[in-house]
Simulated scan of single mutants.
Amino acid sequence: MYPPTYTLQTKPNPFSEFERLRKGSGLKTDEFARAMGVSVAMVMEWESKREKPTPAELKLMRLIQANPDLRKQLA
């Protein structure tokens, strides 16, 4: 009998997750910034990979992408 195999879960890269969530939101840059409660400059910092979004910001992005009604309310 073989011992069980385990796979290590790697943390998602915040930049690649941001890119995926940003594209999936369907919002323009200014609408996305407004929905996130940040400046357009901050969204541009994330896009250029100079700043990474915090875990809380990524969580809000997931909620925005998953819920079209929330997206409309925030934007």
Score class of each variant (00 low, 15 high):
Thr54Asp: 01
Ala41Leu: 11
Gly37Thr: 00
Gly24Arg: 08
Gln65Arg: 09
Leu58Arg: 02
Lys49Pro: 06
Pro12Arg: 13
Gly26Ser: 05
Phe32Val: 04
Ala41Phe: 08
Glu45Leu: 04
Glu17His: 11
Phe15Trp: 14
Val43Ala: 02
Glu31Ala: 07
Ser48Leu: 00
Glu19Asn: 13
Ala56Leu: 15
Asn13Val: 07
Ser48Val: 01
Arg71Met: 13
Thr10Phe: 15
Ala41Ile: 07
Glu19His: 15
Gly37Ala: 06
Met36Pro: 00
Glu31Arg: 11
Ser39Tyr: 03
Gly37Cys: 14
Leu63Gly: 04
Met61Glu: 00
Glu45Thr: 08
Ala41Arg: 07
Thr29Pro: 03
Lys11Ile: 05
Glu17Trp: 05
Ala66Glu: 13
Thr5Glu: 14
Ser25Ala: 05
Val40Tyr: 06
Asn13His: 15
Met44Lys: 12
Tyr2Asn: 09
Thr5Ala: 15
Glu31Gln: 14
Glu31His: 10
Ala41Pro: 13
Phe18Ala: 03
Gly26Lys: 03
Gln73Asp: 12
Lys23Ala: 02
Gln73Lys: 15
Met44Arg: 13
Glu45Ile: 06
Phe18Tyr: 13
Pro68Asp: 05
Glu17Leu: 00
Asp69Ala: 01
Pro68Arg: 04
Gln73Gly: 06
Ala33Cys: 01
Asn67Asp: 15
Phe15Asp: 14
Ser25Val: 02
Glu51Leu: 14
Lys23Tyr: 07
Val38Thr: 07
Ser16Cys: 09
Thr7Phe: 15
Pro3Ile: 07
Arg62Val: 01
Lys72Met: 06
Leu8Phe: 12
Val38Phe: 11
Pro55Leu: 11
Asp30Pro: 04
Leu70Ile: 11
Val43Ile: 02
Tyr2His: 14
Pro12His: 14
Lys49Ile: 06
Lys23Met: 00
Gly37Glu: 01
Pro55Cys: 08
Pro3Cys: 03
Thr29Asp: 05
Tyr6Pro: 14
Ala35Phe: 15
Ala41Thr: 09
Gln9Leu: 14
Ser39Glu: 10
Leu58Ala: 02
